[in-house]
Simulated assay, not measured.
Amino acid sequence: MTIDLPEPIAVFVEANARLDVDGMLKPFVHDAVFIDNGKRFEGHAEIRELLEEEVVPVTAIFAPDTVRQEDGTVVVEGPAHGDFPGSPLRFTYRFTLANGAIKTLEVTV
């Protein structure tokens, strides 16, 4: 199923499918905030560390199947497959965009 995602989100999702950390970071503003199940990561350095330590090693690949606008955010949902307990798990990604880039991303199960 193909869904129409805003450009910075599409860039993130496509890079995630390749487990390309630089590509996943590219659409984030420099001082972006990434909240992963309650843990907060600020700026490219911390987000890179999260991706390199918690996404790539378990080959966690997000496959969005729904998208909607909600209270100023873009909510994207779908399963993530990988080498982690319970895979696949359904995730909700809440993106706040600013000037064509990702300002915040909150991920919950």
Rank of each mutant, 00 (worst) to 15 (best):
M1R: 10
M1K: 11
T2Q: 14
T2I: 12
I3P: 10
D4Y: 12
D4P: 03
D4H: 15
P6N: 06
P6G: 05
P6T: 04
E7G: 11
E7A: 15
E7P: 12
P8D: 00
I9F: 03
A10L: 10
F12N: 01
F12T: 00
E14G: 04
E14F: 04
E14W: 05
E14D: 15
E14I: 02
N16E: 07
N16C: 05
A17S: 14
L19K: 06
D20S: 02
D20T: 01
V21I: 10
V21H: 02
V21L: 00
D22P: 09
G23C: 05
G23S: 04
M24T: 00
L25T: 00
L25G: 01
P27G: 02
F28A: 01
F28P: 01
V29Q: 06
H30M: 13
D31H: 07
A32R: 00
A32V: 00
A32F: 01
A32P: 00
V33S: 10
F34G: 02
F34Q: 05
F34I: 02
F34W: 15
I35C: 13
D36H: 11
D36T: 06
D36Q: 11
D36M: 08
N37R: 15
K39F: 12
K39D: 13
R40D: 03
F41L: 03
F41V: 00
E42M: 08
E42H: 09
G43A: 02
H44M: 03
H44A: 07
H44P: 06
E46Y: 04
I47G: 00
R48P: 02
E49N: 15
L51K: 02
E52K: 06
E52D: 09
E53H: 14
E53I: 10
E54I: 07
E54R: 15
E54C: 12
V55L: 04
V55P: 01
V55D: 02
V56K: 01
V56M: 00
V56H: 01
P57D: 05
V58Q: 10
T59S: 12
A60E: 13
F62W: 11
D65V: 10
D65E: 14
T66Y: 09
T66V: 10
V67C: 11
R68F: 12
Q69Y: 12
Q69V: 12
E70F: 13
D71L: 10
G72W: 09
G72H: 08
G72L: 09
V75Y: 06
V75E: 06
E77L: 05
G78N: 07
A80M: 15
A80T: 15
A80I: 12
H81M: 11
D83E: 15
D83L: 11
D83P: 09
F84D: 08
F84A: 07
P85A: 14
P85M: 11
P85S: 13
S87I: 04
P88T: 02
L89A: 14
L89F: 07
R90S: 08
R90W: 09
R90L: 05
F91L: 14
F91E: 04
F91V: 04
F91I: 04
T92C: 12
T92F: 06
T92L: 07
Y93G: 05
Y93K: 05
R94V: 08
F95S: 06
F95A: 03
T96K: 13
T96R: 15
T96S: 11
A101H: 11
A101P: 03
I102V: 08
K103S: 11
K103N: 07
T104A: 08
L105D: 04
L105C: 14
E106D: 15
E106S: 15
V107T: 14
